[in-house]
Computed example of a mutant assay.
Amino acid sequence: MNDLAFLLTLTFKSSMAVLLAAQGEVLAERAGVINLGQEGMMLMGALTGFWVGFVTGSPVLAFAAAGAVGSLLACLHGFFAIRLGANQLLSGIALTILGTGLSNYLGRGLIGKIGLRVQETPIPLLSDIPFIGQVLFRQNAVVYLGILVTLASWYFLGRTRMGLTVRACGENPAAADAMGAPVAATRFAALGAGGFLSGMAGAYLSLVFTPGWKEGITAGQGWIAVAIVIFAGWRPVWAMAGALFFGLLSALQFFFQATGIHLVPLYVLRILPYVLTILTLSLATALGRRGHAPAGLGKPYFRENS
């Protein structure tokens, strides 16, 4: 039972970066904008969060700054994709290239430095509950935030008027415009909010999961987040399930190392999360889950008289 609790605890810790990035992508894509710049935004968020934490020692400022950088990069993508009507896929890929190169260049002087490390925040009383308390209530504050973000996103998109506007801009922007909804502003807002979550996801990696800065610290998790959104059918709760699945596969390598179990070679465990994610995505696409995509996803919209 202790081993199972340890594995599940690692699962939540390993899934949070992907979860936050995936929730941000869900929000952007439900508004009709594909953002393949997740990897670049996460890398810049990781670098910014580590640097601000290193200088100020404040985790709040570090995560806020990382989120702001992610949001700024997302809005840059929005300028080309929404304002100019550029190809969203190419613009997103360019954003990833920009974020990767810029973070590598700016972060050279930070490699090897010891910065801020955000510790776990046990919840009083709840953390004393056997098994459940260890798994859920002795986590880092970002884990609690990730769960709250998932619930808030589910409620916002499915139960609020503003969420309905976001979904309308993704499904049928012309109809949403005819009803008075500001399509471009709504898409910018959703993209910016999603970028904020992606920047925080990067900061989670450099401040919590593997404290410190190194080039390529995201290790492709931005792309995994995009894949999880498709697997989830653009639904926040299913995105959390996909992120936890990825987290479980990632946690297995740490679990086997910590317990001394050598059933599977380490290099297989390291690539297993990515291989199974691709296979799961392929299966979901084959079963038609891709049909849940917003009808206006990836399509620029301009008023006929503009």
Results as ranks from 00 to 15, higher is better:
E304V: 12
L279V: 12
G57W: 12
I261Q: 12
F254M: 10
R30S: 02
G296S: 01
C169I: 05
G92Y: 13
V135A: 09
L281T: 09
G115W: 05
A141G: 12
A175S: 08
G67D: 01
L266T: 15
R289P: 08
Y301C: 08
L136R: 01
A286I: 05
L90N: 06
A81D: 06
L36Q: 02
R30V: 02
T218A: 03
G92A: 12
A17N: 00
T56W: 03
L19S: 04
A251S: 10
A74S: 13
R270D: 11
E120D: 15
F188W: 14
F137T: 08
V183F: 14
V237W: 11
A251H: 05
M179D: 00
A225V: 08
P130Q: 10
G53A: 06
P173K: 10
P300F: 13
P173G: 03
F80T: 02
A193L: 12
F80W: 15
A141T: 13
T210L: 02
L43H: 01
G199E: 07
G53C: 00
A22T: 11
A201M: 05
G40E: 05
L126I: 10
A258W: 04
G220P: 13
T280V: 13
V26W: 00
L7R: 09
G298L: 08
N140V: 09
T121P: 08
G247S: 05
G57D: 02
S103H: 06
C169A: 10
L43G: 07
F12A: 01
W213M: 13
L269M: 14
R30W: 07
G233W: 14
G212K: 07
R187P: 02
G78P: 07
Q134G: 08
K299P: 00
P265H: 07
V118A: 10
P300H: 10
K214Q: 11
V118C: 08
R289T: 04
V60P: 04
G107H: 11
T56D: 01
K214H: 14
G194W: 10
F209N: 08
L126T: 13
S71L: 13
A286M: 15
M44Q: 00
R161G: 01
S91V: 15
G67R: 00
A189S: 11
A168E: 07
F255W: 11
R290Q: 15
L249S: 06
V237E: 11
T280E: 09
P273Q: 10
V166S: 05
L136G: 02
L145A: 09
W154G: 00
N2K: 04
L7F: 02
I132A: 15
I129D: 14
V166N: 07
V135F: 08
P294C: 06
T56R: 03
G202M: 03
